Simulated scan of single mutants.
Amino acid sequence: MAQTNLSPEERKVADKVVILSKELIILLAVFTVSLFSFVIIAYRVFYLDKTGADERAFAFAHSLVTDGMTQLMEFVTFFGSHYFLIPANLILCAFFLLKKKSRYSIKISAIALSSLLIMLGLKLLFNRHRPLIPLLEPARGLSFPSGHAFMSMCFYGLLMIIIWKEERPHPMLKWFLLVLVIVLLLFIGFSRIYLRVHYFTDVLAGFSIGFFWLFMSSFLIDKIKPVGLKKS
């Protein structure tokens, strides 16, 4: 008769297998949905030439235009610009190096650099020009996908992962910080549409591919175990 009781060691192994299986299922779902969303958006914009969502988004944003709202959107969009994200990434890297959490420092720098290269490559590939009717000043560079949305998703998304994994914050504080970061992320995306420097589909595509790359690169980095570095 087969023995059904597992030893403590075997039970630990079995628990790890179950956890790993759940993580893989979640990751595969995230990868599939985010990448599929990006492909669908690109297909509709560049192959089907369907831009009705962009026009409706501009019309909605135009209905909200006031001097105060414009100042707010200019302020919010700064937090998705390279003027903020470059020093923010450097400060975050230095912070975790001082705390001797090298895994986070590696992850932050690797995701920041790789996402920048991917964003530039995608912009050159799709070669979509900016909207011709900016609310204030014209933005430089190409339009699809939105660099603000892409880079913000990578940076703030990683920040949310770090907040979620840290054990010290009180659960209420942790949820407050997560909601705060999500709201900021959404406002950054909307600010690009409001200021008419990006189409709605640019922003949506930037969030989608940024979400995909954030989880893909984070997963791959976690599987790499350089000698002498502790996993955070």
Rank of each mutant, 00 (worst) to 15 (best):
E9K: 09
L132V: 05
V181N: 04
C93S: 11
L92E: 11
R103Q: 14
L35Q: 05
K165F: 02
V33R: 14
S115I: 09
K165R: 08
P145A: 04
Q71M: 00
F75D: 01
P8D: 06
T70M: 00
S34V: 12
G228R: 13
S109V: 06
I19N: 10
P226M: 12
M119A: 09
F150H: 11
L142K: 04
L97Y: 10
F75Q: 00
S146K: 05
T4I: 06
P134C: 00
F144D: 10
I25V: 12
A139G: 03
F95K: 13
F75I: 01
P226I: 13
G147V: 02
I106T: 12
G141A: 00
S191I: 00
E137V: 02
G141E: 02
L159C: 15
K165Q: 10
S81R: 00
H170L: 09
I86E: 01
L124C: 03
L135M: 04
W164R: 10
V65R: 03
I193G: 03
A139D: 03
S105F: 06
G52E: 10
L229Q: 15
G52K: 11
K12G: 03
L135K: 02
F46N: 09
E166A: 11
L184E: 05
K100V: 04
L48A: 06
L98E: 11
K100P: 12
F36R: 05
F31Y: 15
E166D: 11
W213F: 07
